[in-house]
Amino acid sequence: MTDWAGFRPCTCIAVDVAGYGGNNDRRQSEIQHELPRLLSRAASAAGLDRTRWRVQPQGDGQVALVPQDEGEPRLVDDYIRHLVVELRKYNQQRTGAYRMRMRAALHHGPVELADHGFAGRAVVATCRLLEADQLYQVLARRPDADLALMLSDDIFGTTVGAGHTTFVQEEFDSVLVRKKEYEHPAWLWVPGGAGRQRPDQEAAPAAQLGTSADNGGDLRQTVVTHLYQPDARGSVFGFGSAHG
């Protein structure tokens, strides 16, 4: 992205590594080394040209301005899904503080390149979404989750709500974000289930196996298959036999 004068429409994405401040110096240095590489791999896998993005590093995170001709649905859908994959691969051989878990937020609007960073309410809104209490809370409730995502109501409506992604609305929680001067509805997503899911339900598979009091203790397996798009991503599969 070349320099520009005045305000231009952009998609804003902010990310932050959870629990960064609790790490020692060596681990903080490692996170700052690995984070941009992980983000670049996700963008490349999604077919996005990250060299055109304007990036403002923030130590354990960053704010990026993405040209709108990159396509918001691809950013919301493919980039986020590949980011989850990259985090999962990174964390496979790591435990505890050595895992990298991330918060992410997206919004859009006019932004200006200013002398000390990015100027515009769209950037402020994106940062407030990233600071939302709900993102911290869901990562605390879901220790298995590598990423928690917050979409502004605007960007949710033009991508997920309009049917331009492999996500479906039911995968998101509608929340109200209140942070400093910011108070707006938004949409929360975590891999593997909606954020409102109770901790004791989080490990439950899509196809529930259980014993019913009205069937004499007969264990029945249920087959559940929901295909929302031609692409299988975003679908829920259950496997089993209707006859046990």
Rank of each mutant, 00 (worst) to 15 (best):
D218Y: 04
T225Q: 09
L38W: 10
D173Y: 00
S152H: 11
L39G: 13
Q92T: 05
D154N: 12
V177F: 02
R81C: 03
R103T: 08
E70V: 13
T166Q: 12
D77H: 01
G59L: 04
R37T: 02
F7V: 10
V160R: 13
S152N: 04
H226L: 14
R99W: 01
A186E: 06
L48I: 13
T51S: 04
P9H: 03
A18W: 13
L219W: 07
Q62D: 01
A14I: 07
A119D: 13
S152W: 09
H107Y: 08
L135F: 06
A119Q: 12
E170V: 08
L188S: 05
P205C: 11
D218M: 10
V63K: 10
Q28F: 09
Q201C: 09
E34P: 06
S40D: 05
L87F: 06
A148S: 06
D115Q: 09
T159N: 14
P199V: 00
H82R: 00
E131G: 02
H184Y: 00
V236M: 05
N91R: 02
Q208H: 10
D144P: 01
S152T: 08
P143I: 11
R128V: 02
G216M: 05
L75I: 02
Q169P: 02
D69R: 11
G163D: 06
Q221L: 13
L75V: 03
K179H: 14
M1N: 15
L227P: 06
R128K: 05
I31E: 04
G71A: 15
G47E: 05
D154Q: 13
V224Y: 12
Q92E: 15
L38A: 10
D16K: 07
R233P: 00
L83G: 04
Q68I: 15
E202T: 02
E181T: 13
L151A: 08
A194S: 08
G96H: 07
E131H: 05
A162H: 08
D214L: 14
K179W: 14
A45G: 03
Q208G: 01
A132G: 02
A43K: 09
D200H: 03
G163M: 06
F237H: 15
F172H: 01
S29A: 14
D16H: 07
P185T: 03
E72V: 14
R54W: 14
S44I: 11
L149D: 10
G96E: 08
I13F: 12
Y20G: 10
A105I: 08
P110T: 15
S212M: 15
E34D: 14
N24T: 05
Q93V: 03
Q28N: 14
G216C: 01
R220D: 12
L151Q: 07
F239Q: 08
R121F: 04
G117W: 09
E170W: 09
D25A: 14
S44Q: 13
N215G: 10
A206L: 03
T51C: 05
G238V: 11
S235C: 02
A203G: 14
